[in-house]
């Protein structure tokens, strides 16, 4: 089990994975990054923001930037979808307090960022095998945000690279245009 190549490359980790679904696809992310999950948050749209930003959410006195996972990964969504769940990621201040923060913790933002998804799935154990992602050329996926793939009997789960997901900015859209 532990002999997998992907595992061998990484230092042994104890973190679990949080599974979730969006548009019928399965995803997972490092549970260490997750602060909480909001149910049906009220998203206020923000004009002129990049397309992958669905809007802002009032999170106990702070402004949370809600990202649209599908747009972020480059799967354009035509019809508006309800924001059913929002995974809130930890901020710089939250991560500093962790004894073993995730490797990409330096990419965290100082203000809360969240990811809108359809449903929250299972927690996957730390020893789950994570395969490296297929190269971008083959899959057509934006691999910047993909850390790897978990393969189970009937499906593939995309493991997301949260650090990049919360940090990389789309600079193509300038507000004055």
């Amino acid at each position: 089990m532990n002999l997998s190549l992907a595992k061998a490359d990484r230092p042994t980790r104890e973190s679990q994975w949080l599974g979730f679904t969006s548009c019928g696809r399965q995803y997972a992310c490092d549970l260490l990054w997750v602060k909480e999950v909001l149910r049906c948050p009220a998203v206020t749209p923000v004009k002129l923001a990049s397309s992958y930003i669905r809007g802002v959410v009032h999170l106990r006195g702070q402004i949370l930037t809600a990202l649209d996972l599908e747009e972020r990964l480059g799967h354009p969504v035509s019809e508006p979808r309800p924001a059913s769940r929002c995974i809130v990621f930890k901020t710089t201040n939250d991560l500093v307090r962790l004894p073993h923060p995730p490797e990409d913790h330096e990419l965290a933002d100082s203000d809360p960022t969240g990811l809108l998804v359809d449903a929250i799935g299972d927690i996957l154990p730390p020893e789950t095998r994570v395969l490296p992602a297929p190269p971008e050329a083959l899959s057509g996926l934006d691999t910047r945000f993909i850390a790897g793939v978990i393969s189970s009997q009937d499906s593939l789960t995309t493991v997301l690279q949260i650090g990049n997901l919360v940090s990389m900015l789309e600079l193509k859209k300038s507000p004055s245009v």
């Binding site: 930003i53 802002v56 702070q62 949370l64 930037t65 933002d109 900015l169 507000p175």
Partner: peptide, 15 residues
Amino acid sequence: KPLGRHLRSVSYYTG
């Protein structure tokens, strides 16, 4: 309230 980094690039908003 400050905005997250994704929205900070939109210059029309200060917060």
